[in-house]
Design a protein around this nucleic acid. Sequence first.
DNA 1: ACACTGACCACTG
DNA 2: CCAGTGGCCAGTG
Length: 108
Amino acid sequence: MNENFFENVYEVVKLIPEGRVTSYGAIGEYLGSKRSARMVGWAMAASHTLPDVPAHRVVNAKGLLTGKTHFTTPTEMATLLKNEGVNVVDEKIVDFEKHFWNPMLELM
DNA sequence: ACACTGACCACTG
DNA sequence: CCAGTGGCCAGTG
């Protein structure tokens, strides 16, 4: 296992508490590259094979469930979030700021 | 080696 | 508010 961007992404995502969410940009920023948010999402797509990675807790900067298309079913992501107490309306997280979990503040 | 793509983000007009 | 542009890194054809 090489220690690379992917590993770090997985580590952070695994640490996201239940009922909390974060964004690709936040993770990328925590890893040192704010502009590498694309890669984070891309890493997620590759990591969705790992059961310990709650990908449904990772959304884009606007709180939109952009990654839902990569789930087994498009509704899976919203269902999981709602199941954890995160209200989702029209593929968007309600009170995104309240549920937002900043890795830089929690893991520093 | 080159070009294109991607679960993105922020800025500018 | 919406549209367009640049930037970031890695993988694939």
